[in-house]
Nucleic acid binder design. Structure first.
Lengths: 164, 164
DNA sequence: TATGGTTGCTTGCACATGCAACTAGTGCCC
DNA sequence: GGGCACTAGTTGCATGTGCAAGCAACCATA
């Protein structure tokens, strides 16, 4: 079971360790998504919808410009529009116009939205603990987070900007 | 910038470190997918399609049962059916009936499919190196892989089984 | 050999999402 | 002030995917 060095190949082979590294990343991310989905589905939420609610809840004023929300959630602008449409139709978020700029509109978390998040969050976190953070020793988890943060800084630098 | 300990909250707050940990995982995975997509799109391949081709190429006989392929790729059975349909329509894979069991059919990589993979692989690996493996020190990458493997063993244990 | 349960794969349908095109608002520069 | 490039957000369209249902093949049991 090779971990880093290419076995015998000199050219990029099908078992290139870099290939398996990203494959591992994707497998874990996809599997985690599947493990977490049922909890959210119980509240009628898709993963991306829950993520948006969480991000709004973390924000000063519980509101975010559509564009910032899209970038943070890794969605396209149209995806954000439709997603907020759905949440708005269920009364979990509202749209508020920006006073200083007629183009922008804010998505703002409603009390109902906050309630749903509060309801789902405990079991959600427990599931994370069960399948992800709880699987690793604390120092190993810290190493994992550090490594992922380092990658994110390169690959997705605009992750947290946009709080306005 | 807290890393692990909850700031002041005792109950599961919106900034729970476990929440941010999975968030980090998803952010990196999504961002990597976006970085890798253009290379594959140049060959007319979606990420999932490329993954299937790679997995077939890694397999003895370059063939996999539909069900195993679905499980390995993290797809539903119907998703695998349609994906193989697309690849078959382009001549990159073929379907072969199983002799001993009339229900199962194998997806088998064609020479054309092998050619496409060989064509895309070098630039694909280079992009991985650029945005993922190359960002980290070798020992840090090893720690990352170890941690992800440990998580995968829990969360997606049937990742590699089904070679026959 | 006939029957009921199970498995492997495929289709009907619903749906979330991205891309491209469009509209409306902003700011710049002449 | 008038036009012009740019930005923010929304829609038409295409597409990939999952769920549920369907169908065919297999197997166990009598």
């Amino acid at each position: 079971m090779p971990t880093t060095q290419p076995t015998t190949e000199t050219t990029t082979g099908r078992d290139d360790p870099r290939l398996t590294a990203v494959g591992l990343l994707f497998e874990v991310a996809n599997a985690m998504e599947r493990r977490l989905a049922p909890d959210l589905a119980a509240a009628g939420l898709a993963g991306s919808e829950f993520e948006v609610l969480i991000r709004l809840g973390r924000t000063e004023g519980a509101s975010l410009r559509m564009a910032d929300l899209a970038r943070q959630a890794g969605l396209s602008a149209s995806g954000a529009t439709r997603l907020v449409d759905r949440l708005q139709a269920r009364g979990l978020v509202e749209r508020r116009a920006c006073e200083s700029d007629g183009r922008v509109s804010y998505a703002v978390l409603t009390d109902a939205g906050r309630g749903v998040v509060a309801e789902v969050l405990p079991v959600h976190v427990a599931t994370i603990e069960r399948w992800y953070t709880g699987v690793l020793a604390p120092e190993q988890l810290e190493q994992l987070n550090d490594a992922l943060r380092a990658v994110r800084a390169e690959v997705h630098p605009d992750a947290e900007q946009g709080a306005s």
